[in-house]
């Protein structure tokens, strides 16, 4: 009984770590540009597929291919922001939702055309490996992803706080007009921010690839979870994604163990709805409110 509870909590935390890993980029993009990126899940999908193809053709371990996914997605994100999304910045928010939804449709369906709808997976030597401690099971691949989430949050935080580009990004997020007067090239900063968000999202897709099902249609589901995670943690507040991810992961895990798996999805959305109505700034109260 006690073991089941502890195991549930551990599963929840590890699941939450995965959530946090792929939601940080969503939060960054929203925080700086106010763009709710509905093509977020597609960035994860592209990251996962990068690892998949490198594994399939060169037998490269997903953890080693992660940097490639990062670079590729950075370039992709940079170009998309610079030539497409930048054009609707400053217009009502709905434009960015619809535009990124259009991107979602295009990317997902072109991917289906290229790679078919097949479900794929990467089977490595450690894919199903568990560390057993005191009768508890800890899936290793998830543990690594959890570590990556912590690392990503920390590096991103450091980057935003301590580097020149990071300062420019924060300045733009706070007041883009004033930032522009101070000599910040807003369009470039936006492109870099989106590239950065895409890069860490691609990285998470890549490190998740050993234990998730990879298919061109996987994206939307992840976008929805990222939504919830980021709202729980506080939109635009970077460490919030970590907190939101862990809270959501534990809540879902508890619901799945003690009620049933379908209810855990319902609970996700109920929590999200109640959270928004009661406290839109997130659990930590540090999110931005439009």
């Amino acid at each position: 009984m006690y073991t089941v509870f502890v195991q549930t909590i551990i599963n929840g935390l590890l699941l939450g770590g995965v959530y946090a890993a792929y939601s940080a980029g969503f939060s960054l993009i929203f925080g700086v540009m106010g763009v709710v990126n509905l093509a977020h899940g597609e960035l994860i999908m592209l990251g996962a597929f990068t690892s998949y193809w490198l594994f399939a053709y060169f037998n490269l371990d997903p953890y080693l291919s992660a940097p490639f996914a990062m670079i590729l997605l950075f370039l992709f994100g940079y170009v998309v922001q610079k030539y497409i999304i930048n054009r609707v910045i400053g217009q009502p928010h709905i434009m960015s939702y619809i535009l990124t939804f259009g991107l979602h449709l295009m990317i997902a369906n072109i991917a289906i055309k290229m790679w078919t709808q097949d479900f794929r997976s990467i089977t490595t030597s450690y894919s199903g490996a568990n560390a057993a401690i005191w009768g508890l099971n800890i899936p290793l691949a998830r543990l690594v992803t959890f570590m990556v989430a912590l690392l990503v949050t920390w590096v991103l935080w450091f980057f935003l706080m301590r580097t020149e580009t990071g300062r420019a990004i924060r300045a733009t997020a706070q007041d883009k007009e004033v930032a522009r007067l101070m000599g910040v090239d807003i369009r470039n900063i936006y492109a870099i921010t989106f590239g950065l968000g895409a890069a860490i999202t691609g990285l998470s897709g890549s490190v998740m690839s050993p234990f998730v099902i990879i298919s061109p249609e996987m994206g939307l589901e992840y976008t929805i979870i990222a939504f919830c995670v980021v709202v729980l943690g506080g939109m635009g507040y970077m460490p919030g994604a970590l907190v939101g991810g862990l809270v959501l992961g534990v809540a879902q895990s508890l619901a799945a163990t003690y009620l049933n798996a379908g209810v855990s999805v319902a609970i996700t959305f109920i929590i999200l709805f109640i959270m928004l109505v009661i406290c839109p700034k997130g659990i930590l109260g540090k999110g931005s409110v439009a």
């Binding site: 106010g34 928010h93 919830c228 209810v263 319902a266 959305f269 928004l276």
Partner: peptide
Amino acid sequence: LRLKGAYFAIATFAFAEAMKQIALE
């Protein structure tokens, strides 16, 4: 309806998904 912008959009979305899951489960 007290919520604004993206928050209203997400809240309504969450409500719709929650109802779907409730009807399912």
